[in-house]
Design a protein around this nucleic acid. Structure first.
Lengths: 327, 327
DNA sequence: CTGAAAGCGCTTACAG
DNA sequence: CTGAAAGCGCTTACAG
């Protein structure tokens, strides 16, 4: 080892210099640091991983970065990880690369895995967990109950939307739901129906929109093609809500909120201020921070119990809904 | 090594089984594969890195994922890397974490670095390059001429916007430029001015907007507060263009394109279809693919020369501009 | 506080 | 085609 030689000490000494809390005399440390400076030396994290049996790498499996909710969550996750001196291995998932992803995760010996919602994460979470790699699911719960998760209060948020709309005079309310196998979509719909039921109402119509822009536009067309149009549409995320607004305006000549109320979910339209979307916010910052915290705890101590943290959600009223005369 | 024992062969044999193109007999390979299957064995990429002196990890340093241009580029980059069997280490940059990022990159022995535009990337690129780590800059050129880059034709795009607007009858055209130290912003403005000059025009006014939503809104206010308002505003990216449209409408009661034409840059408003933004597209897919290709080539052979690839750009006409009566 | 030695899980000449 | 051995750059008991 170059540095050890130049500093005139053992490799153990240089290792200890770079190990916080290890016993090294001031003089030795100084010599090592000086030599490192000269050589531009930097401990090799890869080699360290091998002996420590810990890489300091956390896998983040994600997709659909074109959805601002995911890209913002990703940024926050990676930032939180960085603060904890953890590195992020980014894996873009898709139904057909699943196997590759698992083996990448495994072969790079990640210390943990963060799984922002995706419809295929459940199986992967299970695979990792099985091999002793801690996992935390974001915005999604698993069928396997022994996997940690941090979710927003999807049920509560959906219910709040229903109550809010009814209070504003809306009665005929349709719903564009998310991917039918995603727990967050299911919960939002359940909450929405529950809120409506409290007022003796049922949805005017419900169509699946898949959380995508395309899906949202298609669902909107389907809803508006019906005999009787709804007074409002609750969309299971902002991407679909934006698609719905554009479809209303461009294809049906309908104004929002004059002709139709629209509510989204995620509060992810900040970059598109023109929409002024009424939506449900769920503190992404808290979600990300909490998820990283839970993961770090389980990495440090695998006996820490699995937990399910729920972040409260908050309806944000903007300009895609209004108070109806009868409200 | 577990697998070797179970398969009844040497560790060399198992290594060779997992090394494409190595000499192993069919029988040996079969025995190893069977044992691996039983044990759930997966070669340890970390250990391999140590001997191969190559990690298969590429660092991606990025920020502002709330800008859809960056998040989409990131997704494409990571996908392309995955296809090449390379892993992505994601680093979120910010002015004050620069040093940490460099040392993370170095300590994890990344094989290469991808630097999507950011105003601080130049120095980092230089640091990496200096230590023999290939770098390719995206959408940004370096002052240090010996660093590869793939950029869009920012000059040509800016010029095309000017020519297009003039051809449609616009004369008094303002510009909201990007961060003043970003090469892409500078080139777009240069091209824009050149295009105007070809028609004997100069910009009505030019304000710096920093590429952010906030900056775009602020710049728009400043431009519209002037005595004489422009007939159109060319914004150096779509995020600012969307901010400009919202500001026009919400704060000044101006309609686009009736009262004012707006042109963006990046074609990054797909998620916000309501805007129907006239903008400049620069084939992100090609940019990402090319950047990864160039990086991979230099990783494989460090004697490959530095290159600067320019992706052509294309003006996309939508509905935030129109043909003026005099056009 | 310090250094020699073993070992982390692999790959790669080398000899067979 | 195969295995024994050395080595990649570190860390960690261990003995001093």
């Amino acid at each position: 080892m170059e540095v050890a030689r130049l500093a005139g000490v053992s490799r153990s000494a240089v290792s200890r210099t770079f190990t916080p809390g290890a016993y090294v005399s001031k003089e030795t440390r100084a010599k090592v640091l000086a030599a490192a400076e000269v050589l531009g030396y930097q401990p090799n994290a890869i080699a360290r991983s091998l002996t420590k049996n810990r890489t300091g790498i956390v896998g983040i499996v994600i997709w659909q970065l074109e959805n601002p909710f995911y890209s913002i969550i990703l940024e926050m996750l990676a930032e939180n990880l960085q603060q904890q001196q953890l590195a992020s291995l980014l894996l873009i998932s898709s139904p057909d690369t699943m196997d590759d992803l698992i083996s990448t995760l495994l072969s790079y010996q990640v210390d943990g895995v963060l799984l922002p919602a995706s419809t295929i994460s459940s199986n992967m979470a299970f695979q990792c967990q099985r091999r002793g790699i801690p996992v935390v699911l974001l915005n999604r719960q698993s069928n396997h109950d022994n996997i940690s998760s941090v979710t927003t209060d999807n049920y509560g948020g959906g219910r709040e939307v229903a109550i809010y709309l009814v209070a504003h005079g809306y009665r005929k309310i349709s719903h564009i739901r998310g991917a039918s196998n995603a727990s967050n979509a299911i919960e939002r719909e359940r909450g929405f129906r529950a809120g409506l039921a409290e007022h003796g109402l049922i949805p005017h119509s419900v169509v699946t929109g898949d959380f995508t822009h395309q899906g949202g536009a298609r669902a909107t067309r389907q809803i508006l093609a019906a005999e009787e149009r709804p007074e409002a549409i609750f969309c299971a995320n902002d991407v679909m809500a934006m698609a719905a607004i554009a479809t209303c305006k461009n294809e049906f000549g309908l104004s929002v909120p004059e002709d139709l109320g629209i509510v989204g979910y995620d509060n992810a339209s900040a970059a598109s201020p023109l929409y002024r979307l009424t939506t449900v916010d769920h503190n992404n910052e808290e979600m990300a921070a909490k998820a990283v915290k839970m993961l770090v705890e389980r990495i440090a101590d695998s006996s820490v119990p699995v937990r399910h943290h729920v972040v409260p959600s908050l309806l944000i009223e903007r300009s895609t809904t209004r108070l109806l005369p009868n409200g």
